[in-house]
Each structure stands twice: as C-alpha cells, then as structure tokens.
Nucleic acid binder design. Sequence first.
DNA 1: GTCAAGAAGATTGTTGACAATCTGACAATA
DNA 2: TATTGTCAGATTGTCAACAATCTTCTTGAC
Lengths: 252, 252
Amino acid sequence: MTDPNNTNSPLRPLRLAEQAPLTLSLVEQIAARLSERIVTGAYAPGQRIMEQAVADEFQVSRGPVREALRLLEKDGLVTILARRGALVTKLSIDEVREIFDIRAMLNGLRDRAIAEDPDRARHLPLLEKSVADLTRLARDAAQGDAYVEAVASLNRLLGQMLSNRRLKSILDSLALQTLRYSQLGLSTPARRRQSVQHWQKLLKAIREGDGVAAEQIARQRVNDSRDAAIARLREAEKKQETQQESLRRRAA
Amino acid sequence: MTDPNNTNSPLRPLRLAEQAPLTLSLVEQIAARLSERIVTGAYAPGQRIMEQAVADEFQVSRGPVREALRLLEKDGLVTILARRGALVTKLSIDEVREIFDIRAMLNGLRDRAIAEDPDRARHLPLLEKSVADLTRLARDAAQGDAYVEAVASLNRLLGQMLSNRRLKSILDSLALQTLRYSQLGLSTPARRRQSVQHWQKLLKAIREGDGVAAEQIARQRVNDSRDAAIARLREAEKKQETQQESLRRRAA
DNA sequence: GTCAAGAAGATTGTTGACAATCTGACAATA
DNA sequence: TATTGTCAGATTGTCAACAATCTTCTTGAC
C-alpha cells in the first residue's frame, strides 16, 4: 500500500524537556503522529494498532507507545480492549449523531459565554476579520478545502476567547472525534453559503452581547452540520453496501 | 458499605481476565481504590501521589500504578505534571462553577432525550418509586445522607435510561469531579425540599413527554446546586483564611 | 542575613525481558 | 460435516533496573 507513513523517521532527535514547556514529551510526540494518521484516514476505522509495531517504527520501547495509545483512547480516537489492544475507533451513524448532539449543547454554552463576556471587545477585530475571510471564501466554489480550514481557524479563535478551560478541552476532544465527518457537511457550495450566514449572525450576536441568540445560533449551526454529515454518511454506507453486494455476486 | 474491598491489602488475589468481562483489571482495581480515597477526602486536594509508594502498598510494580494514575487524570481526579508526578486535583471556586455550567447543559440534554424517548414508559415505574423515596426522605431532616444517596441512585437510573453512551460517560466523569462539592448543596432541609420539587416536576415532564420542560428543569436544578455549592465553598474559604491568620499571629 | 552555586537524594521516564492470555489452525471425535 | 480439544505463535500485562530530571539541602560569598 505505498504506505508512505508520511514523514517516517525515528523520533529521537527531539529530546524532551529542555526546560521550555513547548517541547512535547516522547509520549505526546507518538500520540500526535498516531492521531494524525487516524484523523487523515491513513489508519482505517477498525484497524488494529499493535504496540510492538509502532515501537519498532519509532524506535522506542513499548512503554511510551502504550501510554500514547491511552491518550488517544481518552480522545476517543482508539478503543482499547483488554488483552486485545487498540483498535481505531469506528463510529456508527448513531454515535456520530450522539457526538454532534453533545457538541450542539456545548457549543451553545461556549458561544453564549463569549457573547456575555464583558471583556469580549478585545477579540472582536480578529473575529471580524475571520468572518470576513470566511465570507470571501464562501463565494468561490473552488475554495472548499480553504473554507473548511477557515472554519477550523475561527473555531480555534473562539476557543481562545473562552475562559472555561474544561469546556474547551471537552469541545476539542469531541471535535477531533468528528473531524473525519464534520467536513462532509461543508462539501457543497450551497452548504457553505448557509454556514457563512450562521457565522455572520453569531458575530452580530457576540458584538451585541446577546448570549441567548448566540447560544441559539450555535445550536442551530451544529445541528445543521450534524444533519449534513449524517446524510453524507448514509450515502456512503449505501454505496458501500452495493459494492459489497456486487463483490458477493462476482464470487458466486 | 459492606464493601469489600475497602480494606487495605495486596490486590493480588483477584486475577484478571477469567473471561468474565466483569472482573476488573489490575490497573482498574488500583484506579478504583485511589479514586475512592480522593473522593472521600482521604487524599487531600493538592496532595502528591507517588508511584513507588502506591506500588509498595498494593505490592505491584510501578507500571500498573502509572496507568491507573493516567486513568484518574482522564476523570480529572488527579493532575499529572511532567516530571513531577500526580497531584490530587484541587479545584478553585471558578473551576467548580465551570464544571457545574457544563453539567447543567448536558443534564438538560440528558433529561430532554429521556423525556422524548418513545420507549421511556418501560422505566417509569422505577422512576416513580425513586422520586417517591426522595419525597419521603426530604420530609425527615435527619435523613440528609440518605437523601444524598437517593439522589445519586436516581441519577444512576436516569443514566441507564439514556441511550447516548458518550453523554453518559462525560456526565459520569463530571459528576465524579464535583462529588466532593455537590453534597454541599443538599446540606440543609430547606435545600432538600427545593430539590425534591425539581425532581417531581422532572418526573411529570418525562411522563408527559415534554422534552423542552425536562431540559429547562434540569438546567435549573443543576444551577441551583451550583449556587448552593459555591456559597458553601465561599464560607469554607473564608473560615480557612481566618484560621491561617490566627496561625500566623500565633507564630509571630 | 540573603542569595547563588553545587552536590546528594528522590522521583519520574524509559527500557528490555518475562509471564499471562488470546487467536487461529489443525487434528480428533461424534 | 460439524463440533470439540490441543497446540504454537502472537500480543498484551507486568516487572525490575537504569537513565534523565527535579527538589532539597548544604556550602560559600557578599
């Protein structure tokens, strides 16, 4: 499989803890590499990840790999079964819906908190610029990927404006888990135009300090993403079924 | 009580994985024991937990202890600092408020989902009985602890009625983190009478399938708990300050 | 008396080896 | 043919030792 392994090389060069708090520990480096492979699909859902294989690849012992897998489990990216090891988490459509439902509530809480923050004016210019970027990208049908990236950037910005660290941490984790699916919801120009309207309304609510409106808009936005993502997943599932059927027919 | 395993002794006897999925792995046993000590206050907030000491006590090596501490970190019970080890998490009043804010939203989602579940009638009898118990206990000022336990039991029941497993898992984790503080909110008979009214209204909303009302009630209930807990924490903080002051005066 | 530098001890991070368990294949039996 | 038993290989669980790092105490200079 051409397994490119991306930039595959030992992790050793980056030694940890040279006093700067920005260096990642060995465990975190391993977790980051594995995380990327899962989110990008290089590791397929359901695939087994074996400790020794990862340890050999990165030229470390199994200990840190083991801990890294536990970190990924915390973020829901892998599922660890006793005596069976780690599997890349495979979400059913119902589970995707459940995660989006939680995100809708918590994004509502986040955006309300931001809109009601007396100190929010400090971040408003950046926010205005970010939404303007989004508006520009939404007009160009060719800029699908750039739009997705801009939405992610906007969400990071909102995360920075949020004082509730625990909420931010939960939201980050849930977003990571559905990253593979969220983008499905922004795959058509029509959806992106709808999306940008939501963001414009949210910006207005924040500017005016209208927390109730901000919460309402956030919930609606996530629910729309959810419905779009689920519709796409249903299509993909149907397609896969017919493929399997044709395979079976060929085998018979 | 009655429990069991509360005694302090080596964990060895219970070997793991005798095919039954109910046996706890060594790591989970250690995590459960440590978790209990933190929640009950046997380990004080801010206290350091050292791997070797725990390993010696339970007569295992540091490996499983290390993993158990990571599990507790996932639940927010300990905070792990690089090269410094694990500390029992110490929550500021603001952090307690933040957690309660998240719980309010997610309990709202939970109770709405339950009220809108077409299959909810199956659990209604148990729920009715549980609220009736609560009503009875609320009348008796001497039954404070029993009331707290009954509320916990009712919450467990609602958790079982919930199909969204991820929501349940997040709620369980948040509840565990604030367990030391939630009880503060039910410490007076007046508060318990207010609490039982909320539960009665929630029961009615679930019976009638009124999801919006259920959500509204849940949020209000958690917000009330939050305010009561915070008021108590403020008192405790003030008391501690005066104590420290008198200590300082004595030293001088 | 206060502060800085350095040494000693304590603690976490990492490793490789061994033990326990699981998986899958093959053979024996009904 | 289908079911059960056994075995070998693979994989995770656990351990003890070593390395890297942090903390604390001592020492010395100002």
